[in-house]
Design a protein around this nucleic acid. Structure first.
Lengths: 322, 322
DNA sequence: TATCAGAATGTAATCGATTACATAAGAGGG
DNA sequence: CCCTCTTATGTAATCGATTACATTCTGATA
């Protein structure tokens, strides 16, 4: 069933049918009705490829994941994709998922662009000094980035990691902690700096004592630091990741120590373990990323966005509340 | 840059260029080399839409998720998609992700089919008596299903839930449990029956005593049943889902009870909590689903596949080992 | 009734590839 | 050297839509 068939059935030319499909105003209402009825009756759908070819536009947006980066452990992708799809759902856009190596990555992007398949990208797994950004900028291709780096200049969307750092300390402070151990992530990633900076801001503003140690975001590093430090010195612990908090949690459980503990990321396990954590609304990250990209594709003006975070208060601090 | 430009640069007709691109054997090697060099030089990529239109074939496969079904809790989708993408990555296929309501779902599928956008589907969130299956069968459209139901007839891929039920009991038996509490899921879903059936098989074969209670797969229901039952009567507990196991885990922790505990699904949290669980290799489910669908699209013969499961042994049973 | 603007519709070119068919070039045999 | 057969290449139709432009229809006005 193609447009020609519908035209024949309706006794009009293909042009008229096309006008109806594309809501052109210059069709007599009765004609339109008649054609719509036939389209409905035969459940006609325009050929997607023919349409895109002729209109010279794609309604695909692309996301390329790093191969094997979608591990079982990752609880980020689900709500993120969910948010993206939720926006696209309402705007007749489709999502092409693909994967690429870190090495051949850029050529994968180029292929999708040169074959005109996608009209924009959501960039994930951002790296410092990212060649993708430079390339996309150089050809002025629409994209939006999840997260930030220091080097490149682009439109991004990012949870407010700094605010998260601030809120974590503030929460501990409010339940009465005066001397807090902050287990930071390693110094490479941008979020490390962001979260730390919030912590330091809180330290200043609330004049609370904070000791800073550096882990690497992993459970093991949390455990190791907890073991090494003399936890008695502190009346609260804040970790820059939930995984590190789990390490600390396990160590404390082993030793029978009980201290207020706050994580960061609000992984599903934190709910189960009852660990207070900083929640970044990942669904919204996906939703707004899609929305912003859509605007960029339509050449509308868009500004980067920083999404608020909040504390998910649970047993690990609740039971110390005075 | 289009095929015409390449033809002009190479001093040949577009047909010849097209032949080179499509590896037609009837091109003189020197000509081929010359054209390939130019294609490489200008990084030419054929227009995806023009190609698909003319060849009357799409290299997209589609997955439609239920809207909002991609929750943070869901740890299934990630490795699943990862597996799908891993296969597609090596076969020049692309994945279109879309979402739909349960209500309007079928029409969404129809649209994608009628617009010729996708050449096959991977069906997730299977329901009993699923109208999608009936429709796809009726028009003989390629698809493969994740999971099974009792009513419909189709090609599926499914982890061996029955074997999982069997292995859970066997594992407890092997560490010395003689009287086991099995907390089943509710009776609706197909997996409930499958897992239970494995449990019963183990009961018979190993002649171990098993008491069966019915929860609903949720953490709360696990907690509730643990509370209601007299756990002292049992020397091991096996839950048909990790979430229920977490409920039991929490209850036992509160009461200071220690019993061997096995879950089912091997969610990420189980690793963190140290709970033994039945692992279904979800990456493989995705990988093979894509592979099978690809074969079906190519009209090759395909048989349904049941994937093996295994026990991820952790502290929750390990420490009871004799 | 003749004229003409504006609305409605039709005709045909076009998007960028693929491919059936036509043609030209080269190889080999007599 | 000519004819035939094979191989290489070119020409042009085609996929199924959209859309600029041409044409026809309608009805209002003089």
């Amino acid at each position: 069933m193609k447009i020609k068939d519908i035209a024949k059935l309706a006794g009009v030319s293909v042009a008229t049918v096309s006008r109806v499909i594309n809501n052109s105003p210059k069709v007599k209402p009765e004609t339109r009705e008649r054609i719509l009825k036939i389209i409905e009756e035969y459940k006609y759908e325009p050929d997607h490829f023919a349409k895109s070819l002729r209109k010279r536009q794609s309604n695909f947006i692309g996301i390329l994941f790093l191969r094997n980066s979608l591990s079982t452990e990752d609880s980020y992708t689900n709500p993120f994709l969910s948010g993206v799809l939720e926006y696209l759902f309402h705007h007749d856009l489709k999502l092409v998922l693909d994967s690429c190596d870190i090495k051949s990555g850029l050529s994968h992007y180029k292929k999708l662009i040169k074959s005109k398949l996608v009209s924009g990208f959501i960039i994930t797994d951002l790296r410092e000094d990212d060649e993708r950004i430079e390339y996309l900028n150089s050809i002025n291709f629409p994209y939006v980035v999840i997260g930030r780096n220091k080097k490149n200049n682009f439109i991004y969307i990012d949870p407010d990691n700094e605010q998260g750092g601030y809120l974590g300390i503030k929460h501990l402070y409010e339940i009465g902690c005066k001397k807090i151990l902050y287990i930071s992530g390693n110094k490479g990633p941008v979020v490390t700096q962001q979260r730390l900076s919030g912590v330091l801001k809180a330290k200043e503003k609330l004049s609370v004592e904070i000791e800073i140690k550096y882990g690497d975001f992993s459970k093991e590093s949390g455990y190791k630091i907890a073991k090494k430090e003399d936890l008695k010195k502190y009346d609260g612990i804040f970790c820059a990741s939930d995984l590190m908090a789990y390490g600390v949690f396990n160590y404390m459980k082993e030793k029978g120590i009980e201290k207020p503990l706050v994580g960061f990321d609000d992984l599903p396990s934190s709910k189960i373990l009852g660990i207070t954590s900083i929640n970044q609304n990942i669904f919204d990250v996906g939703f707004f990323a899609a929305k912003m990209l859509h605007k960029i594709i339509n050449k509308e003006n868009v500004k980067s966005k920083i999404l608020p975070v909040e504390v998910s208060v649970r047993e690990s601090t609740l039971k110390f509340k005075k």
